[in-house]
Amino acid sequence: MFNDSELATLRNRFKRDAELLMQTTTSAVDGEKSQEEKDLKPLPRINKHSVFWIVASVAVTYYADFLHVIMENDDVKSWWFNVGLILLGICLSLAMFCIVYLEWFKGIQHYDQEYPAIPPITTAAFIAASCSFNIALWPVWSFFTPLILFTQFMGVVMFISLLG
């Protein structure tokens, strides 16, 4: 099939290509910023994205008469709504624990490494709260309920991110 000189040529070509590939890979890695450099210059807290979601949340609250519906509408399933409130309270409590206590008082920047159970618990509580609120408010707004609640949740998340 191949004689010895052709195999040696092929092997040398692959070796050269591998060395060239390794040199470009290490130069690309050297060009990236280290984690310490990224931590020194934080991104701005207030940006277009967070302002949009907060303004959208306020607009939905006003135009959907959100607070009035929650307080006085008899179609709201109160048991599911109360479960959603408890789960949302757990989620917000864990977020405030991370932001206020761990980051502000203890100075821990990467609290997900110190307390690895917090992110999955917070995520699960948030998803369960959104499901509970969707079930509770579906009789009021029907298929608009997920859109309204998603806008509200994004507004809350963006507002909390401004604190952290």
Rank of each mutant, 00 (worst) to 15 (best):
I118Q: 06
R45L: 13
W53H: 09
W53C: 08
L43I: 03
V60A: 14
I54W: 00
T25S: 15
N134P: 00
D30T: 08
A129V: 02
F159H: 01
F150Q: 09
V83E: 01
M22P: 00
I160H: 10
V55T: 05
M96H: 11
E72I: 08
A136D: 01
Q113D: 11
L92G: 06
A28Q: 10
S130W: 11
C98V: 13
N134R: 05
A117Y: 12
V69L: 07
E103Y: 09
V55F: 01
I127E: 04
L87W: 07
F133P: 00
F81L: 12
P120A: 12
F150T: 07
I46P: 01
M22S: 15
C91T: 06
F144D: 11
Q113S: 12
P119E: 07
Y101K: 09
S130G: 11
G31S: 10
I135M: 14
L92W: 05
A125P: 04
T61I: 14
V29Y: 13
F133I: 04
L137G: 01
D65W: 08
A59K: 05
N47C: 02
P139W: 06
T123I: 14
S93W: 13
L163Y: 03
D30Y: 09
V29Q: 12
G89R: 10
V83A: 03
F81C: 07
N73I: 07
A129R: 05
L162E: 00
Y63S: 12
S161Y: 07
V157W: 11
E114T: 12
F159K: 04
C98P: 00
F66W: 13
L94Y: 03
H68Q: 15
T24W: 08
V69S: 07
K48H: 03
Y62G: 02
P146G: 05
S132H: 05
K106F: 04
V140I: 10
I135E: 10
F143D: 13
P120T: 11
N82Q: 09
I118S: 07
I121T: 15
K41S: 09
T151E: 03
V58P: 01
N73P: 02
S57F: 08
I135Q: 13
A124Y: 13
E103G: 09
A28E: 09
E36G: 01
G31D: 07
F66R: 06
Q152F: 05
T25G: 12
S132I: 03
A59T: 01
E37W: 02
W53E: 04
M71I: 06
I108V: 13
P42N: 06
V140A: 10
F153L: 15
I121K: 12
I86P: 04
A136R: 04
F52H: 07
M96N: 10
V156Y: 08
P44K: 09
D74L: 15
G31V: 05
S50A: 08
V156S: 03
A136G: 03
S27H: 03
E36P: 02
L43D: 05
L149R: 05
K41Q: 11
S34R: 12
A125H: 02
V83P: 02
M71N: 12
N47F: 00
S142T: 11
S57N: 11
D65M: 06
S34D: 04
D65F: 05
A125V: 03
V156N: 02
I46L: 13
V140G: 07
